[in-house]
Design a protein around this nucleic acid. Sequence first.
DNA 1: TCCAAAGCCGAATAATCATTCATATACTGC
DNA 2: GCAGTATATGAATGATTATTCGGCTTTGGA
Lengths: 216, 216
Amino acid sequence: MKTTHPETLRPRKTPTQARSAATVGAIFEATIQVLLTDGGHRLTTTRVAERAGVSVGTMYQYFPHKQALMYAVVHQHLTMFVDEFEAACFRHWNEPIANITQGMVTAFLDIKIRHPDVTRALYKIADELDTDELRFGTAKSLQTACVSLLGSAPDVTFENLPDIAFTLLTAMNGTTRAVFEFGAEPEMVKMLHIQLLALCRGYLDISAVQRSNVSH
Amino acid sequence: MKTTHPETLRPRKTPTQARSAATVGAIFEATIQVLLTDGGHRLTTTRVAERAGVSVGTMYQYFPHKQALMYAVVHQHLTMFVDEFEAACFRHWNEPIANITQGMVTAFLDIKIRHPDVTRALYKIADELDTDELRFGTAKSLQTACVSLLGSAPDVTFENLPDIAFTLLTAMNGTTRAVFEFGAEPEMVKMLHIQLLALCRGYLDISAVQRSNVSH
DNA sequence: TCCAAAGCCGAATAATCATTCATATACTGC
DNA sequence: GCAGTATATGAATGATTATTCGGCTTTGGA
């Protein structure tokens, strides 16, 4: 598996004029749309340029190659996801485990639902990327945030917190992904929310150890 | 999204002589190996033929096109998975829910672990396939088996059994997939087994309704 | 031993793709 | 309005790809 050196994945130039920022935005959006309608293995520079309403040459002014474009798109959205998820974690810091669970599940789902196209598109691009750095890095960040949040619960403690966080996140992701790949119809999403709450609550209940109430 | 008509996905000829069966076997195995080493987007007819030790022409004697080859490989392994999973379900029929849970989780994991290369390879080929029929069909079969098995527990009942089965299977799949994509080292697999047992037990505990003991 | 069927080969073909670059247009400050 | 920079163009290039087909080799049986 040949991996492209990260250095070369950086965009070629930073847009200064307003129109070029618009161009890059159009290219990003077009990438998502091509992924949705044609699939990852038909994500070609020609198709993206066409859908974005620009020429291929223009694309190559901002990205040295296709890998760089894909990297940028994935990076943008994964970073956004991590940021919003971490923000939600801070919001529920130190709350009882029941609140934490409900807050985390709801936040996880909300972010995905707020950008349904992006969510579905990212599932399709994974195999095209020459590096796993982004996915692994994101997984690590989410796990860290989750560990901290669960550890902040005043009413319980957990053994193997990293393992529990890992399992919780990947399980949520598995069910969510399945729902989105099935079309993510509103009733299905509603069901997903309900079942994920039960899943996580049940898992954390069974894994939690009551904390002896040591007051200050 | 152009989908290939299922009819054309059928193999071109059925091997009669022993050596041709060996050829097809080599092609199947080569497909898995190319997926693992090169990734789905570099799964080419040339590469598969080369790794299988046959010529491209030979491949086209058994499969009318690349889609048919991929379809055959995926179909073979998904069918195997469903068969083994259903067999495990029958084995735990009518047992108490605690046994059912443990049996189902263990079977799910065992099948994946018994064919680690196949497990990882199938994650990579999904986007290349022009049809979702196989994935959706498999999901449906597994869900049906799971619904029946859970429904057979004498000590509990569930509401929304299809939703619960769906959630259970996709959650297990999500965590399992993550572990395999991280390399599936032995200690990781051990952790996976432990955590999946807790996850499913917790979820089913919380979703179950005690069945009033109506003795005949 | 011999032959028809089964199996195999791989160069040739036509399509598609990523990437380049010489040229043209649009914008910004003056 | 002008000069210089930023941005956009798209035909051309070379690589890679899926698929074909005419000819070759092996096999199983008579």
